[in-house]
Amino acid sequence: MRNKYKTIEHTADIGLVAYGENLPEAFLNAGIGMSSIMVDLRTVKADTRIDIIIEEDDPEKLLFEWLNRLLYYFDTRSIIFKRFELISFASNRLEASGYGEKYNPLRHIIKTGVKSATFHKIMVDEKKNRVRVLLDI
C-alpha cells in the first residue's frame, strides 16, 4: 500500500506531501501526517471526537485552514488527532470528525512543535489526489 504521507526536506521547516484514493482522503492524511510530525502517534488513543467544519474560497486556503484548525485544537484543548472520518467535501468546504486524545506528557512521546501551515509551495493536485504544504516549525 502506498504511504499516506511523507515529509520532505526544507532547511528551517518541514514539508509534507499527502496522498489519497481521492482528494478528501489526501486532506485527511495531511492532518495525520502533521500529527505524526508532532507526536509519536503509536502512543495516542482515539477516544475523543471533535467535529470540524472548514469553509474557504479555494482549495489551497482550505488545506491551509484545515491544518491550522488542527493546531488550534492542540493549543486550546490539547487534542492530538490520530484519525479522521470524512463527513463531506467540496473544493471550498471540508467537514470531518477528528478522533484523538488529550495530550498527556507522561504517556505521549513529543517530537516537533508545528507553528503553522504556510502558503509557500502549497499545492492541491486534484488529478493525482495529492496535496503539499510547508509547515513552519
Binding site: 474557504e56 491551509f64 485552514e65 491550522n68 493549543d75 486550546t76
Partner: peptide
C-alpha cells in the same frame, strides 16, 4: 508570541489574499 501570534499571522494572510 506562541499560538496567539501564529493565529494572527494565519488570519491576516487570508485577509491579505482576499
Amino acid at each position: 508570541s506562541r499560538g496567539l501570534g501564529h493565529q494572527v499571522a494565519d488570519d491576516y494572510i487570508k485577509v491579505m489574499l482576499e
